[in-house]
Design a protein around this nucleic acid. Structure first.
Lengths: 379, 379
DNA sequence: CTGAAAGCGCTTACAG
DNA sequence: CTGAAAGCGCTTACAG
């Protein structure tokens, strides 16, 4: 009681000294009128409650009576009020943003993954902030630094390349993160492990069962192969394991690896090997590589699958529209994004998530026809 | 002088009442240690200058001596300080963010456009915030509202669909905007006009010169065609104008239009018309539609271009990898993004920007071979 | 050239 | 259940 009395006295005393310097910039006021951007205090004034109350109904804190909440909500609707992103994030010290970094938007696999993540995040009231690395370590790091600066609630690193320095930044930041095909779960960094091995194995088995014995494995690398892509390593291993487990003898495998975007690399791979090494089937490490393989083969009048069978990996949406439709290994993007977002929002300790892959049979594989001359080699 | 004296007195009086409630949350302090996120005041303290000075060097305001600026910069580097996005945007009342809304990330045209915009924006120190509408009016509006809420510095609406209500929101907001193929420039809303007509005309001329007289124009629509895509309208008109200007008589044109993603629509178009209407060449309204046309044709053993020629529109990166490589009309994404970002940052009045298109000749077009039975009709 | 302070528009203990 | 006030981390007139 005393406190209040003193306070009131002080206020009176204060008046002449501490003139409340309300910077009423008339231009600004006009601008506000013009842009019609209501603030939380406009809502509060309309309903005659305090800012805190409006904030409580906005954020669903239950400490508001139903009556008040309805009146506030009505005012919000009436004014078309939407909280300012920057003010609320600053005050809250956290965002509803999930950072997503992918390697390359032009590769449909990443575009589709990003879209799936966006949809999944939206289900939880989160948005995504998307950045691409183009496989460059500097861009990779810059993207992660920016995202960390933006105080993201979670980070999904869905790149096929890895960058250890960036990973350390993420771990130091403490931000919940999920790395696609990351090597290990640690602290705040979970890992989604795509079981490429199983899918690859199914693909190889399929070809072996058809009778193929001469397989060409076409890969692409980025940046001169200085940073081998982890997903590719896993697919490599899957390929090798599948051959081993195939219980078939007399298998001959060749591997070609070119640098650059998948389609270019695939095309160059065929150009380089055609006529030198015999193969009746090609396994492309991604669907985009398979597109290039198609191009390389068809430019040489090699028919798919009559002369050479082709299998891809990823099941991008276009793979169905190639001629012939591509047999490929499906990496379930929906499931990937569901698991990722869930792991990010759970905020528990790092975990290893698993995702299985499956073979999608279409028209690019068939029984080998050795009487033709597929690899350009006389038999 | 008097004022100050009174103030000091008051301070003394105040002390017992108004204890400075410095909320020193020890956990928070530890967190700060842990996350090692330095604030501007950490930098200021290190160099022994005020916050304003640090801010000035951060933002390149020239009112700092070279000596000071160097010392501050050194401290910034040493601490690894990066300004908090939310605090600076809130204080500045503006962002360095360009909102980009596209129709669909899965369509390479949009993915490539988004990527080009990101690169262009980065050149000016801006970042992009990317949202997809999936051609749905509600999503379109939601995306624009979100972006406006985030106080973007500029907005690039690179969708093929239009939404008048959203456009009004943008105009009311006063945010500099660029609409792809928008109908008119107005207030803050500029327009990039892609000269589809010229490209379409080149495509039609090319086919007429080859000797084609029976043309099939394949389009796709979205959402049941309730909101015809503006870019498509322009391409339609370009097609019609080209036929008119072709100075060739005896041209027979057919048009098919299906709803849905381009590739699906293209495939269904062929399925629906094949055997009913004769055509020796197809013009697809986009490259993705052309992909579906390829599929539809090739599934019926129609050879491209021996039996039927195909021309696409957009020149997406994959068009080169189709079998055969697709002849298409190039829409220069680099130039598009350059013009767009420039218009956004210039902040002048609305302008109409123009972009020309050009025909890219590849292997999907050839002289018509009437002796075969391309359209499935007996001649 | 530099510093102190108000303000951006919210959220959240805290007090009632 | 509700309100007043401090604080988030910056920027920017303003005063010196």
């Amino acid at each position: 009681m005393l406190g209040i009395a003193v306070k009131q006295k002080l206020r009176i005393l204060l008046k002449p000294v501490k003139v409340p310097k309300v910077r009423v910039n008339p231009a600004q006021e006009e601008l506000r009128e013009f842009t019609k951007r209501p603030r939380i205090q406009d809502v509060a004034a309309l309903v005659n409650v305090s800012l805190g109350t409006v904030s409580a109904v906005l954020n669903g804190n239950g400490r508001v009576s139903e009556k008040t909440r309805q009146r506030v909500q009505a005012a919000i609707d009436q004014l078309g009020y939407r909280p300012d992103l920057y003010a609320s994030n600053l005050a809250r010290r956290e965002t509803r943003l999930i950072g997503v970094v992918v390697s390359n938007l032009q590769n449909p696999f990443f575009a589709e993954t990003a879209q799936a993540l966006e949809e999944e995040a939206a289900l939880h009231g989160y948005q995504i902030s998307l950045m691409a690395t183009n496989f460059a370590p500097e861009q990779h790091r810059a993207a992660i630094e920016h995202l960390l600066k933006a105080r993201i609630a979670g980070l999904a690193v869905m790149t096929s390349e890895q960058d250890e320095a960036s990973r350390q930044l993420v771990i130091q930041s403490g931000v919940p993160a999920v790395f696609l095909d990351g090597s290990k779960a640690e602290a705040n960094a979970s890992v989604v492990h795509v079981d490429s091995r199983r899918g690859m194995q199914a693909a190889v088995e399929h070809l072996l069962q058809l009778g193929h014995r001469d397989l060409l494995f076409v890969r692409n690398s980025q940046n001169g192969g200085s940073h081998p892509l982890l997903s590719h390593k896993l697919r490599d291993r899957g390929f090798a394991a599948a051959i081993r487990l195939g219980k078939v003898t007399g298998i001959m495998t060749s591997v070609v690896d070119f640098d650059g975007p998948g389609a270019d690399a695939g095309e160059r791979a065929i150009a380089s090997i055609y006529g030198k090494t015999y193969f009746s089937a090609v396994i492309a490490i991604t669907d985009t590589v398979a597109m290039g393989v198609y191009r390389g083969l068809q430019a040489r009048n090699v028919r798919i699958p009559a002369d050479v069978s082709v299998v891809g990996f990823d099941n991008i949406s276009f793979s169905r529209f190639l001629s012939p439709p591509l047999t490929t290994v499906d990496v379930p993007r929906k499931e990937l994004s569901r698991l990722t977002v869930e792991a990010l929002l759970r905020k528990g300790h790092a975990r290893v998530l698993s995702l299985s892959t499956s073979l999608v049979l279409r028209d690019s594989t068939a029984v080998p026809a050795r009487e033709t001359n597929p690899g350009g080699i006389e038999m």
